[in-house]
Design a protein around this nucleic acid. Structure first.
Length: 617
RNA sequence: GCGCCCGUAGCUCAGCUGGAUAGAGCGUCGGCCUUCGAAGCCGAAUGUCGCAAGUUCGAAUCUUGCCGGGCGUGCCA
C-alpha cells in the first residue's frame, strides 16, 4: 500500500470511529458511507503540510454540520495515528496533515529494497497489447515529425510494459500504392540520369539509393517497377551500408531508442490475398454496399445505412449529415482498385487474428478524421469499442530561423531525426545525447500540443535542454555513492527502520514523500497515456534535491577529506546519520533511474562538462 | 458549415477526474565556487488563466455561447 493510501485509510477509519461514536450526529453513519467523494491531496505550499484532506468540506452537507466542526472532530480522531503525526484545521475546513518520519522511513526502506522494480507492476499480469506507431511511409528517411510519433508511441508502449502489460511494438510498412510507385520511378530516373517530375521524389537520397543499387548484382534496374520498388523499400529500411546520410529507417529508430517487434508489410496483405478475405468477411456481415460501381463500408451494416438514407431524403438536417462517416467509405474504387482503407481493414483484421486484448494505434492529428471509420471497422470485425484506442498527437511545425517551412518528403526538404541527433551528440560530446534530448523535448509536451521545431534554434540551444539538468542530477547522486564506496565503511544500507531515524531534515522527508509518489505517477501516466507527466515529475525531483545539496554544503552527507585527516574523526562523526542519508540517496537514485528509464532516456553515472559550455561565457 | 486540438508570465509550456496566495524552463536583473559535481544554488520583476454567461461553499479546471489559431472534412495515402 502506498503512503497516500495509508493516509487515506487512516482518515477513513477515523471517520468511521467518529460516526459510530455519534460525534457526527445522527446522519453521521450514513453520511460517511454515502459522501465518499473526499480526497487526499498534496498542498501546493509546504507550510500546509505533507498532505491535506477536504473530507470535512465534502461531508458538511450530508452530515449537517459546518466544515470546521467536522474538521475539529477529525483532528481529534487522528491523534496517535500510526502514519499521521499532526493534523490541523486550515482555511475553509481543510485538514492539513503531517506524516510521521517513521512512515516515510518505511517507504524509503521499501524503495531501496525494491530498487528498479519500485512502482512497477508484476510482468504479464495485464493485457496483451499491440501498439502500432511511426508507420511512416518508407519512401524517405525518418523526419523529426515522425520522430515525435515514434517517441510518443514507444513511451506509451514502455509505460504499458512497466504496468504489467505484454506489449508488441509494431510498424506498418506502407509499401503499396502510388507513393511506392513514384518512389521506384524516381530511383529509376536517377539511375538513368533523367530529370524527375513534380510527382517524383526530389531528395538527394534518391540519387544515393540509385548509386548504391547500381553496385548490386543482379542489376535491380533490370527488374520491373514492382520488383524495383521492393528493392528500394528494403534499402530505405535497412540503409545503404556505410552511408552516414542513409543509415536506414530501422537504424534511425533504433538510435532513437525505438525497436519494433513486428514490421508488417502492406504489400504482403495484397500479395497473400488477405485483403479479399477481410473484405469478404465484412460483406458476409452485411457491412458492404455497392453504389455507382464502387464498394462502400457502412458502419452498423446495410440496414442501418438504408435507414439513414431514408431519413436523409425527407429531413433537411439529416441531409447535411448524410455524407458523414456512417454513410459509407469506399473500399474498392469504381476502377476496381483497392483503397488504402481496404488495406487497413485487412491489416487490422490480421492484428485481431493474432489475439491481442487491446489494439492501440498512434496517429498524427492530420489523420484524426480517419478515426471513426477505423473504430467502426474494428467493431465490425468483432473488437468491442473499448478494446481499441487511437491516440492522436498534434503535429510538428518545421521552422527554419523562425520561418515556417512547408516540408514534404516528396520535395526533399525535410529535417531528419538523424541530423538533429548528430548535431546534439556533437555539442554535448556524448553519443546518445541527441536521442535523450529529442525524447525529452517531445515528451515534455502533452500530445495535445502542437510543437514548433526550429533546427537552427535546436542546434544553438541544444545544451539548454532540461534533460541534461535532470541527467546531471543523476550523475551527482552516483558521484556521492562512488565517494562513499571509496571511503569504505558506508557500503551498507540502514539495517532496520530505527536505523533511518537520523534522517529527519524536513527537506529530506519531503523528498522522501516525493519518491513515494512515483508508483502513482507511473500508473497515472500509463493509464492516461500521458508520458509527459513523468518528465515533469523528474524535473521536480531533480530541482528539489539539487537545491537541497547546494544548500546543505555546510552539513555534508560524507565526511570531507579534511575531516578525515583529523585523527579522531571516526569517533566524532555521526556514522548512523551518514548511513541513513546514503540509504536515502540510494532511494532517490533508484526512482530517478526508473523514471528516466520509463521514458527511454539514459541515466549516466558521469557527465563530462562539454567544451562548448565553457567557451560560451 | 461540421468535427478534433489549442488559447495560462516577454517566449516555450505544465496545471484541466473542481480546492487555499495560478507554477516550471528559457530570457531579464542582483547575489553565491578553498569543502559531497557551478550542466549547480539563492533572491527579484513579470499574469484581465482569449471574452461572456451559467453551475457551486469554491472555477484556469465543469456547461453553454462567442472570438482567435492549427488540423481535418477524397473513389489520396
Amino acid at each position: 500500500m502506498s503512503l497516500v493510501d495509508r493516509v487515506r485509510t487512516s482518515i477513513e477509519s477515523a471517520l468511521s470511529r467518529l460516526a459510530s461514536g455519534g460525534a457526527l450526529g445522527e446522519k453521521g453513519p450514513r453520511a460517511i458511507t454515502e459522501a465518499r467523494g473526499w480526497t487526499v491531496e498534496r498542498p501546493k505550499r509546504p507550510e500546509h503540510g505533507h498532505y491535506a484532506t477536504n473530507a470535512a468540506m465534502v461531508l458538511t452537507k450530508a452530515v449537517g454540520m459546518p466544515p470546521r466542526a467536522i474538521a475539529e472532530q477529525l483532528v481529534g480522531a487522528l491523534a496517535d495515528d500510526a502514519v499521521i503525526q499532526s493534523a490541523e484545521i486550515a482555511g475553509p475546513g481543510f485538514v492539513n496533515l503531517r506524516l510521521r518520519p517513521r512512515a516515510i522511513h518505511e517507504e524509503l526502506a521499501a524503495i531501496v529494497a525494491a530498487g528498479p522494480l519500485y512502482g512497477r507492476k508484476a510482468a504479464a499480469t495485464g493485457e496483451r497489447v499491440n501498439v502500432e506507431f511511426v508507420s511512416a511511409n518508407p519512401t524517405g528517411p525518418i523526419t523529426v515529425a515522425a520522430a515525435r510519433n515514434g517517441i510518443y508511441g514507444d513511451a506509451i508502449a514502455t509505460l504499458l510494459e512497466l504496468t504489467g502489460h505484454r506489449v508488441t511494438r509494431e510498424y506498418y510498412i506502407n509499401d503499396f500504392g502510388n507513393q511506392v510507385k513514384a518512389f521506384a520511378e524516381s530511383v529509376r530516373l536517377a539511375h538513368e540520369g533523367k530529370p524527375r517530375g513534380e510527382n517524383h521524389y526530389q531528395g538527394a537520397y534518391i540519387d544515393e539509393i540509385a548509386r548504391y543499387l547500381e553496385t548490386r548484382k543482379p542489376d535491380p534496374f533490370a527488374a520491373d517497377d514492382v520488383e524495383l520498388a521492393r528493392t528500394c523499400i528494403t534499402t530505405m529500411l535497412h540503409g545503404v551500408p556505410g552511408s552516414k546520410t542513409l543509415p536506414g529507417i530501422r537504424k534511425t529508430l533504433s538510435d532513437l531508442g525505438i525497436d519494433f517487434d513486428v514490421w508488417f508489410s502492406e504489400e504482403s496483405l495484397h500479395r497473400w490475398g488477405n485483403v479479399d478475405v477481410a473484405i469478404e468477411k465484412l460483406r458476409a456481415g452485411g457491412y458492404l454496399v455497392e453504389k455507382e460501381g464502387a464498394v462502400f463500408f457502412v458502419a452498423g451494416g446495410a440496414s442501418a445505412a438504408k435507414e439513414r438514407e431514408e431519413k436523409a431524403a425527407k429531413d433537411d438536417k439529416a441531409q447535411k449529415a448524410y455524407r458523414t462517416e456512417e454513410d459509407g467509405r469506399v473500399v474498392k474504387k469504381r476502377d476496381g482498385a483497392w483503397t488504402y482503407f481496404a488495406s487497413d481493414i485487412a491489416y487490422h483484421a490480421d492484428k485481431l487474428s493474432r489475439g491481442y486484448d487491446r489494439i492501440i494505434d498512434v496517429w498524427g492529428a492530420d489523420h484524426h478524421g480517419y478515426i471513426p471509420r477505423m473504430k467502426n471497422v474494428l467493431e465490425a470485425l468483432g473488437l468491442p469499442a473499448e478494446k481499441s484506442e487511437i491516440l492522436i498527437y498534434q503535429l510538428v511545425n518545421i521552422l527554419r530561423d523562425g520561418e515556417a517551412v512547408k516540408s514534404s518528403k516528396r520535395a526533399g526538404n525535410v529535417i531528419t531525426a538523424d541530423e538533429v541527433m548528430e548535431e546534439i551528440d556533437e555539442a554535448a560530446g556524448r553519443k546518445g545525447a541527441g536521442r535523450d534530448a529529442l525524447r525529452f523535448f517531445f515528451l515534455s509536451r502533452s500530445a495535445n500540443t502542437t510543437v514548433d521545431f526550429d533546427l537552427e534554434i535546436a542546434k544553438k540551444k541544444s545544451l539548454d535542454n532540461p534533460v541534461f539538468y535532470v541527467q546531471y542530477g543523476h550523475a551527482r547522486l552516483c558521484s556521492i555513492l562512488r565517494k562513499a564506496e571509496a571511503i569504505g565503511r558506508y557500503d551498507t544500507v540502514p539495517a532496520s527502520i530505527d536505523a533511518w531515524a537520523k534522517l529527519d531534515h524536513p527537506d529530506e522527508l519531503a523528498i522522501g514523500l516525493t519518491l513515494s509518489r512515483w508508483p502513482d505517477v507511473l500508473a497515472e501516466a500509463a493509464a492516461l497515456r500521458e508520458p509527459h507527466r513523468i518528465v515533469f515529475y523528474l524535473q521536480d525531483l531533480a530541482r528539489d534535491f539539487q537545491s537541497y545539496f547546494t544548500r546543505m554544503k555546510a552539513d555534508p552527507v560524507l565526511p570531507r577529506d579534511s575531516t578525515r585527516q583529523e585523527p579522531d574523526w571516526e569517533k566524532t562523526w555521526d556514522h548512523e546519520k551518514t548511513i541513513a542519508r546514503l540509504g536515502w540517496i540510494r532511494a532517490i537514485r533508484a526512482v530517478y533511474a526508473s523514471a528516466l528509464g520509463a521514458i527511454g532516456i539514459s541515466a549516466p553515472e558521469r557527465m563530462e562538462l562539454p567544451q562548448a559550455a565553457e567557451e560560451d561565457t
